[in-house]
Design a binder for these strands. Structure first.
Lengths: 243, 243
DNA sequence: CGCGTTATTGAGGCCGGTCAAACCATGTGG
DNA sequence: CCACATGGTTTGACCGGCCTCAATAACGCG
C-alpha cells in the first residue's frame, strides 16, 4: 500500500480535485492517497439527457470526472428551471441527505463518474471532511448567487455572472485558462438556468459578443473583458471559508 | 440537574423548537434538556432594520425567539434581493461556516434571540446533531424553491409559494393555525424577496384577495384556499429527510 | 394633530415572452 | 454523394407582464 502513496495519480481530473481540496484544507497523506485511489476505481458512464437521480432519492456520492450535469426542477406545465450546474471535479451527494437529494439531477452531456463513497467517513473532524464541507458550502454560495441573478438582474447581467462562475469553477478544475473554456450547453439549457426564453438569451449573447465582452466559437467561450464582466454582474470569487 | 429535566421549559418558543427538533430526530433526554436550557439564558434584543451580521462575518449561533429577519444581498446600484427569511424558532449559524456566513443578515422587525452555542457540539453523530443538520437542509430546500420561483414563476405564483412556505414554517413554530398567521413585512420587503416592484406586488396581492385566495387585514394573512394556492405555486411541504 | 412610512392607483414604456419561420450543422440511410 | 431528418441557432413581428414615475390615500405613532 505504501508504494501506492508515492505512485502519482496521473488522471488529470483527480490531480485537479486533489489540488482543489488541498486549497480548502491541508489533507493528510492518508487522505490524499484516499482521493488518489479514486483514479483506480472503475469509471461509469451515463448518456446525455438522462435522469441521474430522481428528487428525494438517496444514492452513494459520486465524483464527476467528465461531462456536465444539472439539478433541475420541472413545473407541472413543463416550465423548467435549472437550479445549479455540476461540473467535472464536482462531488454529487455527501453520503447523507444534502442538496443532492433535494432536486432531480440530469446529465447534460455524456458523463464519466466514479463512486466516491470512500471519501466520506464518519463524523470525525478530519481535514478531508472539512474540505468536503467547504465544497458543499461553495454549492450553497452558488445557489445564493443564482437567487440574486434571477431576482434582481437583467438578462446580460445574469449571463455575465453565470459565465464568471463557470470560468472560476472550471479553472479550479484545471479545465479553463485565460478566460477560455468549453461550455457544452445548448442555449435552451442556458435559458432555463437564467430564467429567460431561448430567443431572448440568444439576443443577449449576441449583444455581449457585439460589445466585445465575450467570444463564442462552437462551444468554446472566451471571456474577453473579465473586469467589465465582473462589474456588470457584481460577481466576486467565492470566499475561501474552510469549515 | 435531574430536577430540571422534569421541569417544563415553559417558554412557548422553546417548546415549539423542541417539538420541531423531535420531529426530525428522537432527541435524548440530555439533549432535550440542553434545548430547554436555552429558555433560561438571557435573551438579547435587536431593533428593526439592523444589520445583524455582515456577509462573511463569523459569529456564534443564535436561536431566534421572536421577530423576523432575512438574508439579503444588495447590488452596487441599490437593487436589493432578499435571499431567504428567518422566522421565530430558526437557528442562525451553526458554529462553523454555513449559509449564515454567506449573506448579510438584517432584522426586519424587532428581534429577541439567545445564544445557541450550547446546541452545537463537536462532530459526533448525535440525534441532536442530526436534527440540526435536517434544519439546515430545510433552509437549502427553501433556497431551491426560491430559485424556481424567481426563475420560472409569475408574480402570483411566487406570492402563493412564499405564503405557503411561511404558513408551513410558522405552523411548525406554533405561530400559525388554520392558514392564519401574522406576517410583519412591508410590501417593499415582499417585493424584494420575490424579485418584483412594490407596485406590481401590490396589484398582485389585490388580485389574489379579489379571487378569494387569501385575506389580508393589517399584518395578518389568512390562506383561504390552500389547495388552490398549492396548485398555483406547485408547492409541497418540505420532505422529512432527517440526516 | 401632524408627519413619516406604507399602501394604492394611474399612465406610459420597456424588457423580455411567444409564435413562427428560416437558417445551419450534423448525421443517417439510400 | 445526395436527400432527408433532426436538433440547435438566428431573425422578425407582435404582445404582455412587469417596471418606472408620479401622485394620492391611508395608516401608525409621537
Amino acid at each position: 500500500m505504501s508504494c501506492l502513496v508515492t505512485a502519482p495519480a496521473d488522471a488529470p481530473e483527480i490531480v485537479a480535485l486533489l489540488a482543489r481540496l488541498r486549497g480548502l484544507a491541508p489533507l493528510t497523506e492518508e487522505e490524499a492517497e484516499r482521493v488518489a485511489g479514486l483514479a483506480r476505481l472503475p469509471a461509469r458512464e451515463t448518456a446525455a439527457r438522462q435522469e441521474l437521480r430522481a428528487e428525494g432519492q438517496s444514492a452513494p456520492p459520486l465524483l464527476l470526472l467528465a461531462g456536465w450535469a444539472c439539478r433541475v426542477h420541472i413545473l407541472p406545465d413543463g416550465r423548467r428551471q435549472i437550479i445549479s450546474f455540476l461540473l467535472p471535479g464536482d462531488i454529487i451527494g455527501r453520503g447523507r441527505p444534502s442538496l443532492a437529494e433535494l432536486c432531480s439531477i440530469n446529465s447534460l452531456t455524456r458523463l464519466r463518474h466514479v463512486d466516491a463513497s470512500s471519501l466520506v467517513t464518519g463524523g470525525e473532524e478530519t481535514p478531508l471532511a472539512r474540505a468536503l464541507r467547504a465544497l458543499e458550502l461553495q454549492e450553497v454560495a452558488q445557489l445564493r448567487d443564482q437567487v440574486v441573478r434571477l431576482g434582481r438582474q437583467m438578462a446580460h447581467e445574469r449571463m455575465a455572472g453565470l459565465l464568471l462562475e463557470f470560468e472560476a469553477r472550471l479553472t479550479a478544475a484545471g479545465l479553463a485558462s485565460g478566460g477560455c473554456f468549453a461550455m457544452p450547453l445548448t442555449q435552451e439549457v442556458l435559458a432555463d438556468a437564467l430564467g429567460l426564453s431561448v430567443v431572448h438569451l440568444n439576443r443577449t449573447l449576441q449583444q455581449m459578443r457585439r460589445e466585445g465582452l465575450i467570444a463564442l466559437k462552437g462551444r468554446v467561450v472566451t471571456l474577453k473583458q473579465t473586469a467589465a464582466l465582473r462589474s456588470i454582474a457584481d460577481w466576486q470569487p467565492p470566499p475561501r471559508l474552510a469549515g
